[in-house]
Design a protein around this nucleic acid. Structure first.
Length: 427
RNA sequence: GUGGUGGUAGCUCAAUUGGUAGAGUCCCAGAUUGUGAUUCUGGCUGUUGUGGGUUCGAGUCCCAUCCAUCACCCCA
C-alpha cells in the first residue's frame, strides 16, 4: 500500500465493525449524564494557541512538545488543535457568561490532538469525554464526580478492573512552599539524581516524585511531603472528600505521589487506573481547578471536573469482554425480478411505517444467494417477494431464527402480523 | 522524542541452509425448476509495507524509510 494512501500516523479510522461499541458507550453516557443533570457544551476543535498556553502551563510537556500548532497563513494567527477539553470549556463559559446565574454542570466529548509517539491506548487524535462543574466550591462536587464515575464503571461492567487513587495538591500557597522545600531537598542530594530528575529539578520538581527509577526510590520516599504543607482548609476539604467516598462505599487509595500533568489543578486530584492496559492504564482523571476561570480572565469561580480517554475505555471493555448489544434488522427483504423489486420497495416502506427495521436486498442475485445474505445479516425474518407475490400484492414471510413454517399473506396482513408479534397491534 | 520486536491474500497464519508464494477462513458459482446454518465440487484474491543494495537468483541477507506493537517519556 502506498504511503500517500494511508491515514496520518496516530490517527485512526473508526470502522463499521467497531462502531456499535462506540455507540453503545455513547448511549450509556447520555443516559448516565441525564441522571446527574449535566448539559452538553460543544466547542471548536481549533482555538487560539494562547488559550492552551495560559490554561495548561507553558512548561508542561503538552504545551512544550505535543501540541499541533500552526500559523493560519491567511491571517497570520497561531492556531492549535485542542489537546484537551477543559480550557475550551472555561473559555466558552467566560465568553458567554454562562455563570451569570450560578454554577453550571457541563459535559463535552470529541477528538483531542497530541503529537506523541503512538502506542495502544495512546493516539495523536484520540477522544475524550469529560465533565466540568463550574462555579461550585466545597467538596460536594468533587464527591459527586467520584460517585458518578464509579456508577459509570458499574454500568459498563468495569468495576472489577478499575481502582481509584486520590490525592490533594492543596492551595497555591502550600504548593509553592512545598515546591521550595522539594527543590532544596533534591539540590542537597543532587548526587543521587538521575538525568531525568536533574532536568525536572527546576521546571517541575513535583514530577521527580513520580519516578520509576528503583535507584531513586529511597530518596523519593524521604522527600518532603506535600500533605504536610496543607493548610487547615485544604485538609478539611480532602477529609470531606474521603468521608464522602467512605459513606458511598467506594474503595480508594491515597497516593501522595499522584500529580496531574496540567498546571491548573489544586486541592483534589484523582485517577481511575487499570492494570489491564499496560502502560496506558489511566482511564479517567481529573480534579479541582479553582484558579483557572480567573486565570483565563473570568470572574473568580471555583471548578472541578474530569476527563476520560474513550479509546482506552473501549479497549478495556473489549479486554473484559463487554459486547455491544447486537443490532440486526427485523426483516431482510428478498426480491427477485423487476416487478418484485418494484413491489418490494412498497412493501419495505409499509413495514417501516409499522416501525420495523428493514434491510432491502441490493445488487441482484438469485433466490439462493439472497437467502444466504438474509441469513448472514442476522435478520429475524425474511420477507420474500417474487413475481408471483408481486402480481398478487402478497408477501411470503419466513422465520429465520426460530422454527416455523413460512406463510404467504397479503401485504397488509403481513404488516399486521409483525405488529402483533411486537405487541403493537391495536384493534 | 529514545530503545526493543514485528510487517506474506480482506482476516488468521505457513514457506525447509537464499531457488521466481501456499493453507484455512471469507467471498462467488454449482449439487434438477423460487428458499438460509451443515456437507460436497469448482473459482477469485497477493507488485511478500515501501525504496534501494548484495546475488545467477531475495518473502528469506544488508541499508534506509513507513506503519504497528512493547517499554521509556508523558498522559486520557
Amino acid at each position: 500500500m502506498s504511503n500517500s494512501l494511508r491515514a496520518v500516523r496516530g490517527m485512526n479510522d473508526l470502522l463499521p465493525v467497531d462502531a456499535p461499541l462506540w455507540q453503545y458507550f455513547e448511549a450509556t453516557l447520555r443516559d448516565w449524564l441525564k441522571s446527574y443533570g449535566y448539559h452538553e457544551l460543544r466547542t471548536p476543535i481549533l482555538e487560539h494557541t494562547g488559550l492552551f498556553k495560559r490554561a495548561i502551563g507553558e512548561v508542561t510537556d503538552i504545551v512544550e512538545k505535543e501540541m499541533y500548532t500552526f500559523v493560519d497563513e491567511l491571517n497570520g494567527e497561531s492556531m492549535t488543535l485542542r489537546p484537551e477539553g477543559t480550557a475550551s470549556c472555561v473559555r466558552a463559559a467566560i465568553e458567554h457568561n454562562l455563570l451569570f446565574d450560578g454554577g453550571k454542570r457541563l459535559w463535552y466529548q470529541g477528538p483531542m490532538f497530541r503529537h506523541e509517539r503512538p502506542q495502544k491506548g495512546r493516539y495523536r487524535q484520540f477522544h475524550q469525554f469529560g465533565i466540568e462543574a463550574l462555579g461550585y466550591a466545597g467538596p460536594d462536587l468533587d464527591i459527586e464526580h467520584l460517585l458518578m464515575s464509579a456508577r459509570l464503571w458499574k454500568r459498563l461492567g468495569l468495576s472489577d478492573c478499575i481502582r481509584l487513587e486520590i490525592n490533594s495538591l492543596g492551595g497555591a500557597e502550600s504548593r509553592a512552599l512545598h515546591r521550595q522545600k522539594l527543590i532544596a531537598y533534591f539540590q542537597a542530594h543532587e548526587a543521587f539524581l538521575d538525568e531525568d530528575a536533574k532536568r525536572r529539578l527546576i521546571g517541575n520538581p513535583l514530577r521527580i516524585l513520580d519516578t520509576k527509577n528503583p535507584a531513586m526510590q529511597s530518596l523519593v520516599e524521604a522527600a518532603p511531603k506535600l500533605m504536610e504543607e496543607l493548610d487547615d482548609v485544604a485538609l478539611a476539604h480532602f477529609e470531606a472528600v474521603k468521608a464522602g467516598l467512605d459513606a458511598a462505599g467506594i474503595a480508594y487509595s491515597v497516593n501522595p505521589r499522584l500529580v496531574r500533568g496540567l498546571d491548573y489543578y489544586n486541592y483534589t486530584v484523582f485517577e481511575w487506573v487499570t492494570d489491564r492496559l499496560g502502560a496506558q492504564g489511566t482511564v479517567c482523571a481529573g480534579g479541582r481547578y479553582d484558579g483557572l476561570v480567573q486565570q483565563l480572565g473570568g470572574k473568580p469561580a471555583p471548578a472541578c471536573g474530569f476527563a476520560m480517554g474513550v479509546e482506552r475505555l473501549l479497549a478495556l471493555m473489549a479486554e473484559v469482554g463487554v459486547r455491544a448489544p447486537a443490532a440486526a434488522a427485523d426483516v431482510y427483504l428478498v426480491n427477485v425480478g423487476e416487478a418484485a423489486a418494484r413491489f418490494a420497495l412498497q412493501a419495505g416502506e409499509s413495514l417501516r411505517d409499522a416501525g420495523l427495521d428493514v434491510l432491502m436486498h441490493g445488487g441482484g442475485g438469485g433466490f439462493k444467494s439472497q437467502m444466504k445474505k438474509a441469513d448472514a445479516s442476522g435478520a429475524r425474518h425474511a420477507v420474500i417477494i417474487g413475481d408471483d407475490e408481486a402480481a398478487a400484492g402478497e408477501v411470503t414471510v419466513k422465520p429465520l431464527r426460530e422454527s416455523g413454517e413460512q406463510v404467504r399473506l397479503p401485504l397488509a396482513a403481513g404488516v399486521r402480523m409483525f405488529l402483533a408479534q411486537k405487541g403493537l397491534l391495536i384493534d
